[in-house]
Nucleic acid binder design. Sequence first.
DNA 1: CTGAAAGCGCTTACAG
DNA 2: CTGAAAGCGCTTACAG
Lengths: 368, 368
Amino acid sequence: MSSVRDIAEHAGVSISTVSRVLNNDPVVNRDTRDRVLSTANRFGYIPTIGRRVTTYLGLAYTGRRTLSAPFDAAVMDGAARGADESRLDLVILNLQRDKLPDETYTQFFLRKGVRGVILRTLSDSREACVAIAREGFPHVVVSERFDAPEVNYIDCDSKADTTRAIEYLISLGHRRIAFAMHNLPDCDHLDRLAGYQEALQNHGLPLEDRLVFRHPISLAAGGTVFKLTQSMPDGPTAVFFADPLLAIGAMRKAHEMGVRVPDEVSLVGFDDTDMRYAVYPALTAVCQDASRLGYHAASWLGRALNGSTPKRLQQIVPTFFEINGSSAPPRTNGAADGEHNAREAIRDGRVVSAGESVPSNGDEAANR
Amino acid sequence: MSSVRDIAEHAGVSISTVSRVLNNDPVVNRDTRDRVLSTANRFGYIPTIGRRVTTYLGLAYTGRRTLSAPFDAAVMDGAARGADESRLDLVILNLQRDKLPDETYTQFFLRKGVRGVILRTLSDSREACVAIAREGFPHVVVSERFDAPEVNYIDCDSKADTTRAIEYLISLGHRRIAFAMHNLPDCDHLDRLAGYQEALQNHGLPLEDRLVFRHPISLAAGGTVFKLTQSMPDGPTAVFFADPLLAIGAMRKAHEMGVRVPDEVSLVGFDDTDMRYAVYPALTAVCQDASRLGYHAASWLGRALNGSTPKRLQQIVPTFFEINGSSAPPRTNGAADGEHNAREAIRDGRVVSAGESVPSNGDEAANR
DNA sequence: CTGAAAGCGCTTACAG
DNA sequence: CTGAAAGCGCTTACAG
C-alpha cells in the first residue's frame, strides 16, 4: 500500500508533483507525468476513500455500453462472483462520458478510485485496450484477443468448434451451408467465419459469397436472414449463425413461415448463455460460457492485484459443441459417410449430445 | 458538501466522535452514534476519494444477487443510463459479504463510498429496505412496494392488467384458466394472483386450487407446469404465467409435446424485457419495461442527491397488456361476447395488439 | 464515552 | 515546470 511519498521518492520528484500528476494538472511536464504514472502503476498505487483503501474493480466498455445483452449480463454475473473472492466491488465506468481528453487512462481510473479494470471492447475501439495495457494499469480484457504482449485477456477460440460444427453438418449430407454474422465483426465472429471457411475447404466445397450474411445483431435480423435463405434459388439446407440472437430470431421466423426445423432446414447457432434451450427444438450450437469468462477475469485480476499471481494473462478458453434438436440430415439425403463422422466427433470427448433436456441448474432461476 | 466539522457542530459532538461513528468504533454510545448518523444523513454527508467527492451510486441486493436474470440485466442497463444524467457511476455492492453485523446500513454505505443506493429485494429480505429508509440513507427500491412512508420505491402494478388478461381469455371463451407463479412470491406475483382471482370472481368462475401452480422460476419449471396442465383430467384450456421464464419454458414444452399453441391451448405470460418475441408464436403478455424502472430509479436518486427533486418517491408505473399469437378461443368454442370484450379492451388505449412483428430497436442489438 | 491535539495523506497557493 | 510549506479532511493515540 504505497503513498504519494513512495511514488515521489522512486520517481525522483516531490509529493507535490505526484499529486499534480494524479490530479491531471496540465502544468506538469509530459515526461515527468509519464514517469510518475508508470511508477504509480509499478508500485500498485491504490486510491483511498478517506483513509481507507478502495475495494473497487472497474468494468469499462471502450465503446458502446451493452449491459442488457445476455452475454454482458452473464459476464457481469461471473465477474461479480470473481470479485467476491478478493472482496472487491464492481463499478461500471463510463469512459466515453467521463474520461477527459487530456487525461491518461491511469489518471482516469485512479480518479475513479478503481484498482484494476475489466474491459469489454469492440473491434472499432480495441486500440484503447492496448493503450491501457501500455500505461501499465492493471486490466484484463474479456472476450477479445491481442498480439501486443502487454495486453491481458481471456477469450474463447470458437474457430475449431465452428469447423467441427460445419463438418458435422457436412457429415449429415449438407452441401450448401449458409453463414450469418455481425456486419461489424469482432475477433469472435471472424474466428467463426474462418472456421466455416476451413470446414468447407477441407471438404472441397465452394466458398459462396451469396451464402455469407452480414447484419447488425437482433432477433429481427435473424428472421431476415432466415427469410432470405428461404427465398434463394438453390438455397442452403443448413444455416450457421455466429450469434445467439440471430439464431433465435431465425428459429422464430422458421416457425412463423411454417418451415420445419430440422426436417426442412437445419439451424446451428452460437450460444454464450442458455438461450439455446429457450426455443424448440433446442439449438445445436457452438457454446461458450460467458459467466465463466467474467468469473475468471475478475478472479485473476483480484489475485494479480494482491500479488498472488503473475501479472500477465493471455488465456484462450475452449468452446464446446453441443448437438441438439435443430440439426438433421437434409431432406434430399444421401450422406453415406455422415454417421461415421458424427460418431468420431463424439468419441473425442468435446462434442456433447445434450438431447432435449433443459438443464435445471439453480443459477438460471431468478426471482422473477 | 458537508464535512465532519458540519456534522459535529449540528450533532453537538466533536469531530473525533463523528469520525469514530463513521468508522464504526464500537466504543461510541449508541444514542450518540444514532444522532451523528441521522445528522450525517440529513446533511447529505458525502464520502471522498482523496479529497474528491465520490460519484458512486450503489446497487445492492438485500437477498441473493441475481445479476444474470434478464430482468436484472434490464434494470441495470436502465440504471446506468439514469446514473449518466447525474454523472454518477453504478457500483454493485454485496451486503451479505461485506456488511458487518454491528454496522448500520448508513455506516456500510458510507464506508463503501456510495452517495445513494438502488435496492433490489425479495419478499424474505424486504425488511432491510425499511431499515435503510428509517436510517435516512438516500435510497430507492426497484420493483417492490411498501406501506412504510419512509421507503422510496418504484414498482409496477400488474394486478389490473392481469385481471384484464384473464378477462380477455374469458371473453375468448376460456372457462378453466390455470395460473403459475413463484413458490416464494414477491409483491408482483401476489398482484398477479390477485388479478387472476378477481377476474374469475368478476365472471362467476370458481377459484380452483388445483389450477394454481407454485414453482421455483426456471425454463424447466415452466415445462413441468405445462406438462402437469396437459395431463390433468378436465385440464385448463389456457394458462397464465406470472414470470417470463416459466412462460418461455412452457412454450418450449408445448412444441416438444406437439401441443399446438394457441389452437389447442392458450398461453399468456408476463414479460419484463423482450423475451415474448423470442418464441413463436410470440407470447400474449402483461408487460413491464424493466429498463425503464431502472432508469427512473437512478435518474430520480441522482436528482434527489443534488437536491433538485423532493426526497420522497413512491411511484407505481402501469404495465401494459399486449395481445400476440399465443392466445385464441378454446377448441370447443362458443364465445359470443368474446369479440366485443376484446375490442373494448383495445379501445381504452392500454391494450396493444402487436401482431407478430418483432421490434427491431437498436437497443436490443448487442455486439455478439 | 468523549474531546483536544498530534498526525497522515493529500492538495494547493506561494516562491522561484 | 517544480519544490517547500501551509492547509484540508479525516483519524488516532492520549488524557480525562
